[in-house]
Amino acid sequence: MKLGVLFSGGKDSTLATWLAKKNGYKIECLISIISENKESYMFHTPSISKTKIQAMAMGIPLVVIKTKGKKETELKDLKKAILIAKRKYKIQGIVTGAVESVYQASRIQKICNEFNLECFNPLWQKNQFELLDDLLKNKFEVVIMGVFAYPFDKSWLGRKIDRKFIEEMKILNEKYKINPAGEGGEFESFVLYVPELFKRKLKVKNWEDFGEKNSWRGEVEAE
């Protein structure tokens, strides 16, 4: 079955892509929504314009749509993107990296149903520590691109998701109820390399940090 992936460039949508490929599905295209609203209800925002570089490294075509990111217009824009992918790449289904968000998942289910597409959410309800362990086990190279909750600060930007990171998440989870995989929007990530999915490794060329106190985002120039 030919599939398109709703792709943000972060760990979840990349892990979902990897799982689909590993299970024998053909990834025809990635679909990215660039939201002008940094507080988007539906989409992960930092560095999403860098999905183009990731798509090139994977050798998979990318469909990009810009949205102003207002609550209901962003759904219209998402529909538009999915329809373009269906027409251009003849996809028969959509893959998402939804883990916990019923808001996100049920809206995508409705769009897929309207367009007669299968909808796959291979990370659905996944334990967040298991999700982080899966990244390590399968040698995903992932860096933190944004932090949006206490007690995170600027020093977390650019950190790799490694064993030490997971151990610290265990402590932050116990102490501050931080979701270990950032499912509550506590942090966002960017994938630099995945064996068997990326044809080459991305490198961070330049970092720019924006923010204050416990809310920081990085803009990365990858190559």
């Binding site: 299970n23 291979p122 659905w124 309800q125």
Partner: peptide, 16 residues
């Protein structure tokens, strides 16, 4: 029927 659906519909029950 679809292999990839296992993760969404069976694995969460296995996890419980």
């Amino acid at each position: 029927k679809e292999k990839l659906h296992f993760y969404e519909f069976v694995k969460p029950v296995e996890d419980i």
